[in-house]
Amino acid sequence: MTMKKVTANMAGTVINLLVKAGDSVQAGQDVIVLESMKMEVPIQSEAAGTVTDVKVNIGDFVNDGDVLVVLE
């Protein structure tokens, strides 16, 4: 099994976690919602897989490129 990562595509605050460890996700599924500059941006997983780790909590501030969710 290879590790896959879902990363932030902009700087912002985590406002919602849509998955937890153990969940299986489809490619293209929304996994995290970020908010920046009054705009909500859902972040999708590019790959299908099982969530092994959610690296962030609601309220965390993340930068462009930060790892949000790890899948395998």
Binding site: M10, A11, G12, S36, M37, M39
Partner: peptide
């Protein structure tokens, strides 16, 4: 606005 002109995603910095 501080945003990407193609994706319209916010571009703080």
């Amino acid at each position: 606005c501080a945003e990407d002109p193609n994706t319209f995603l916010p571009s703080p910095g």
